[in-house]
């Protein structure tokens, strides 16, 4: 399990990237997908997922459609064109950030040879 803080900053990126690949997904499906992709190491709680989904929708990055199954309504999320752009730029940003963190945290300066 990873810490909440670590997850919080990357959650939007994860959601955008998943939707970019899958086209459209509903909330429960996203949690299951994240769980299986991360070998169970990353548990996306409802408390983290839904506020973020609604936020992304209000920012115009996601659009939704509803499918009614008897008494149940299933809300599917997919990327808007702006969401597609955001997904690409966030992924790029994350890649650079993670490379920089790696350099800072794991690099060793060369010891001098004689």
């Amino acid at each position: 399990m990873f810490s909440k803080e670590l997850l919080k900053g990357t959650l939007k990126t994860i959601i955008l990237k998943l939707l970019e690949e899958k086209g459209r997904m509903y909330g429960y499906e996203i949690t299951q997908h994240v769980k299986s992709l991360s070998d169970g190491k990353l548990i996306l709680t409802e408390g983290a997922l839904y506020p973020t989904l609604h936020k992304l929708e209000s920012e115009g990055l996601l659009k939704t459609e509803k499918i009614f199954l008897g008494k149940r309504a299933r809300k599917y999320y997919s990327l808007t064109p702006a969401g597609n752009k955001a997904s690409i730029s966030r992924l790029k940003e994350f890649r650079e950030f993670s490379a920089a963190m790696h350099m800072i945290l794991f690099s060793k300066t060369n010891p001098d040879g004689h």
């Binding site: 008897g70 008494k71 149940r72 309504a73 299933r74 809300k75």
Partner: peptide
């Protein structure tokens, strides 16, 4: 439908009353 109504009661008891979210959590918990 009866089982779905049972889940809905659980959400109501937990003060989830914002309709779009309630609808969504109902599907999620089901």
């Amino acid at each position: 439908n009866q089982q779905i109504a049972y889940v809905e009661d659980f959400l109501t008891a937990h003060q989830l009353d914002y309709p779009p979210l309630k609808e969504e959590m109902l599907d999620h918990i089901c």
